[in-house]
Amino acid sequence: MPTGVHIQDARAQLFDAAERVLLRDGPHALTSRAVTTEAGVAKGVLHRHFEDFDAFLTQLVLDRIAQLASLAPIPGVGDVVDNLTETLTRLFSSVAVAIVALITFRDDLRHRLRQARGTGGVPLATEAAAMIGDYLRAERDHGRIAFDADVDTLAPTLIGAGHLLFADRHAGPPDPEAVRRMVVTVLATALP
C-alpha cells in the first residue's frame, strides 16, 4: 500500500484480517505478515499501532472478550435450553474456537492476557463461562433454574462441552440438535 493513504480504522481492519486468517488457516498461520497482507496494508501499519505482534494479539483477544456481552441471553425470556443452545452456537460459530486455540498455541500471548485481565484460566473461555454463569444465576432468581443448581459448575461445563462440539474447524459446525442435546444433558438436574 502506498504511503500517505489514510486508513479509516486500522485497528479494526487489522483485527478483522487476523480473524479471517485464524478462521481460514488456523493459529499457526497467524503472523504479522499474514495479517497485514490480508488487511491489504503495509507491515508498518501494524507496528505503528501496536508495540509488537504479541501486543496486537493481546488487544485482539481483549477486544473479542469485550464483545461477549452482546451474546448474553436475556434472563426470563424464551426457553432456557433454547437460549443457551443459541448462545453457545453463536459463541462457538464465531472466532472464539480459533482464539482459544491461538491462546493455547502462544505462551507469551497467554501470559500477557493473564497480566492484562488479572485472572487465571483460559482467556475468552473463562469470560464466556462467567457470562453463562451470570445468565444461569439470573434464571435461578426467576425460578427457571433449580434454586440449588450449582451454576459455578454448570457454566464451565457448558463452555467446555460446547467447545468440544465446535473444536474441529474443518468438519464444520455440529448439528444444532447435538448442541441442544448437550445443553439438556448438562442442565438435566438443574431444570425444575
Rank of each mutant, 00 (worst) to 15 (best):
L113I: 04
A101S: 13
L91G: 04
A98Y: 06
R117V: 00
A72T: 08
I74A: 12
N83W: 02
N83I: 01
V100D: 09
T126V: 08
I99D: 10
A128L: 08
L124M: 12
G78W: 03
G120Y: 06
V77W: 02
A72S: 14
L113K: 03
P123H: 10
L102E: 13
H111E: 15
N83V: 02
L91D: 01
G121K: 04
L91K: 05
L113N: 03
A128W: 02
D107L: 12
H111Y: 12
D107F: 11
P73N: 03
R114V: 08
P73W: 00
L88F: 12
L84M: 10
V97K: 08
I99T: 07
A101G: 09
F105V: 02
E127M: 06
I74L: 12
G76Q: 08
A125I: 03
L109Q: 05
R90T: 09
A125C: 06
L109A: 07
L88E: 09
R90S: 14
P75Q: 02
L84N: 06
I74C: 00
V95K: 05
R112W: 03
A125D: 11
T87A: 15
A125N: 06
R106S: 10
I103F: 08
V95T: 14
I99H: 08
N83Q: 12
T126M: 07
N83L: 00
H111P: 00
D108L: 13
F92D: 03
L102H: 07
V100Q: 11
Q115E: 11
T119E: 13
Q115I: 03
D82A: 14
F92L: 09
G121P: 02
P123R: 10
I74F: 00
G118P: 03
Q115K: 10
A128M: 04
D82N: 07
D82T: 14
G118R: 08
A72E: 13
L124F: 15
V95A: 13
A72R: 14
V122N: 09
T89R: 14
V95H: 11
A116R: 14
L88K: 10
G76F: 06
V122P: 00
I99V: 15
D108W: 00
D108E: 15
V100L: 11
R112T: 00
A130M: 10
T126S: 12
D108N: 12
L84K: 05
R117Y: 01
T89N: 03
L84E: 07
T89L: 07
D108H: 11
E86N: 12
A116F: 03
G76K: 09
R117M: 07
G118S: 06
V95C: 11
E86G: 12
F92W: 15
G121E: 01
L124R: 04
G120L: 09
R112D: 07
A72Q: 11
P73A: 04
V77Q: 13
R110P: 00
L109F: 06
T89M: 09
E127P: 05
A129I: 04
G78T: 01
V77P: 00
